[in-house]
Design a protein around this nucleic acid. Structure first.
Lengths: 191, 191
DNA sequence: GCTCAACGCAACTAACTGTTGCGTTGAGTG
DNA sequence: CACTCAACGCAACAGTTAGTTGCGTTGAGC
């Protein structure tokens, strides 16, 4: 990401060891409140080395989180709007219910920086997923005046709310219901 | 809550001072990660006294949160389903966007106990608000086979998602949109 | 084989949580 | 009024974790 980094080969190897250790630790504990000492031990690296690269623990966790979020999530292209939304909703559901996902989405109040990360994440995700609606419009499966991002937001919101607040399992029936509501909103008006 | 508490009059006064100090501190910092020393200072009470009543900081915060949540929220009764849902959505929006509400709803990963609190809160809230749908059904404003709790959940979810994840303001237009979607779901089928 | 940045290591400081022992206060009882 | 005993204040303490500092060690590249 930063081509200006001179850093001997050692540097890059250590970077990866640290960040993957952070992720492993977050997944193991289900919390962003990980201990720097644990990360150092898991990465086989001294604590001092970590603090030479990151200002404080927050910066460390933030870097690891950003690294994960940069992994591209493929945009579904099944040939039909229903298929695309179904696949997208399932994928989002998986992310939300995974240990790492839950830790990321729930940790918020303690850091303004993470608020930005969340907002950027969803904005980017909805932006890219809008491609689904664009293709659907070309196929005539979708009204031309549909707000793609809003439609996606309203489809994902119930999944997120149920997983984080209600605590109920994200069963396939519930996911399917959200997809159907989205399809209904995208459908041509009959009146 | 505990009738077996003998406690001289001093006890109850101190209880209230402590809990309200906790709430004030949460509102001020926007976090549940408050410092016990600060609470003690704000309550004009010694730290030891707090630890004599609550096992640890988590128990203290939990008690304060529960005390707040026990304050009854009035169920709207405007005479129309649209009016009731509009008022309900606005109230929920206010809660979600308030400093205290945001702190409560976002703090989650660090404590299993808080997960139960959230679930209980929404379950209780939707249960009581179902009365709105029951009255609407009696007035013929609502289909008889509507799942009241599900309808309310799907109306609230976008508000919560936008406030906590998207970070966008909860403007009246967005709230009104959710109310209209709920009304549409409750409406008699025309086919 | 020389150099210098990256790394390891140990010993700190600082902040916060939770504990302990003891002295002090004050509401209820005789 | 005097006595009692639980509730409270207080100070000092132990334990954990974040973050720092100074110095010795290593290893890639010239």
């Amino acid at each position: 990401m930063n081509a200006s980094t001179p850093a001997h080969r050692r540097g890059r190897v250590v970077d990866e060891k640290i960040l993957s250790a952070v992720i492993a630790e977050i997944e193991a504990t289900g919390t962003l409140s990980i201990k720097v000492d644990d990360v150092a031990a898991a990465a086989g690296v001294n604590k001092t080395t970590i603090y030479r690269r990151y200002r404080d623990r927050n910066a460390l966790v933030l870097a690891a989180v950003l690294a994960v979020m940069e992994t591209e999530v493929p945009i579904p292209d099944t040939g039909s709007l229903a298929g695309d939304l179904d696949l997208l909703a399932s994928t989002v559901g998986d992310v939300i219910t995974s240990p790492l996902g839950r830790a990321l989405l729930s940790a918020t109040a303690d850091s303004r920086a993470f608020a930005d990360v969340r907002q950027t994440y969803w904005a980017s995700r909805f932006e890219k997923a809008s491609e689904i609606l664009r293709r659907a419009t070309e196929r005539g499966e979708c009204r031309r005046d549909v707000d793609a991002k809003l439609l996606l937001e309203l489809m994902v919101a119930p999944l997120h709310f149920r997983a984080t607040q209600i605590g109920a399992p994200l069963d396939t029936a519930f996911i399917k219901l959200q997809v159907e509501r989205a399809l209904h909103a995208a459908a041509q008006r009959d009146d």
